[in-house]
């Protein structure tokens, strides 16, 4: 996914001289093609994220379109006040990309996990929050975010994520993509957990339950139209995210439900626990520790439907 990001950012940078790429001392060789332009639009800002965010704001105040790239916790919680005051309060077109989001860097330990970023980004006024499922969605998210004149946060994985989506001419921020139709229940995924969600739909199918699968690449603004549809149509709507169950997409949908008249559907939420994971392992291991497996999701949904 990060290679796709670098490739897409380079293409976009070729076409738009306002685009500037700021990296927090990561992505060795990742941006060689962007750097090879030699026109002074790539900055390794060092291990100094607060400054990097302020610099991006100053550039945006001067008519440029900065894209910031570093590991998710360092580009969100590390420099949160700069995002809040410099970028969001001024409502500037700065694109913040967090790589290795969720449990992508499970083996690096809890300092490198990012299971709060959706919550803290979506609470900020003016901020659009995106979590593409694969590199196809990522490329479209990046292009769409550049058309905004407001801040956007894009949380991405690391590398070799399964490609599920096809290029969608009608891609729009705030409009979920239906990945699979189904009449019995609805599974909503956001971000790179989508293959697990599809696996859960497969497992449900074996048991005779047809699950619709939605890819919510946009956490904010929320796709209220799709939500209204699925909550009126299905008895169970499950949200699956590689993020805390507090404050992420599930939390956001729960907030939305409080504003609705009584809905038919019941919301159940899959995500990480309200705890730090101190034991290291692979991403799959970490996901499994939090019940983010196809089998567990299918099992829990079945238990409610049956």
């Amino acid at each position: 996914m990060r290679n796709a990001f670098a490739d897409e950012a380079t293409q976009l940078g070729d076409a738009d001289p306002r685009i500037v790429l700021l990296s927090g001392d990561i992505g060795n060789q990742l941006f060689d093609r962007f750097k090879s332009k030699k026109d002074g639009r790539f900055f390794n800002c060092g291990i100094a994220e607060a400054n990097m965010m302020g610099v991006a704001a100053g550039m945006a105040l001067s008519g440029l379109r900065p894209i910031i790239y570093t590991i998710a916790p360092f580009t969100t919680s590390r420099c949160y006040e700069q995002i809040r005051d410099d970028v969001c309060c001024h409502n500037l077109p700065v694109i913040i990309v967090g790589t290795g989001s969720g449990l992508s860097y499970a083996e690096l330990g809890p300092t490198h996990h990012s299971c709060e970023d959706l919550a803290i980004m979506r609470v900020l006024p003016n901020m659009t929050v995106l979590a593409p499922a694969d590199e196809v969605e990522l490329r479209q998210c990046l292009r769409a975010a550049l058309k905004l004149s407001e801040p956007a946060y894009i949380r991405i994985g690391k590398k070799d994520e399964e490609i599920i989506q096809k290029k969608d001419e009608n891609f729009e921020i705030g409009r979920s993509i239906t990945v699979r139709e189904g009449s019995d229940t609805c599974l909503i995924g956001t971000g790179t957990i989508l293959p697990v969600v599809l696996g859960a739909a497969d497992a449900l199918a074996v048991q005779g339950v047809a699950a619709r699968v939605e890819s919510f690449h946009t956490i904010k603004p929320l796709d209220e139209k799709t939500l209204a549809d699925v909550f009126s149509r299905y008895p169970v709507v499950a949200v699956i995210e590689e993020h805390s169950r507090i404050g992420g997409l599930g939390g956001s949908i729960a907030e939305w439900l409080t504003k609705q008249d009584r809905m038919n559907g019941r919301l159940i939420s899959f995500g990480t626990d309200d705890s730090f994971m101190h034991k290291i392992g692979t991403q799959d291991y970490a996901r499994a520790r939090y019940g983010l497996t196809s089998e567990n999701i299918a099992c829990q949904v079945m238990a409610i439907i049956a």
Binding site: F43, M52, G54, G58, M59, D85
Partner: peptide, 19 residues
Amino acid sequence: SLGHGLPIALGMALAARIR
């Protein structure tokens, strides 16, 4: 909030170079 103005100023100064 203090400590914000200089990074912003630096971004503006770099923007002059780019533009």
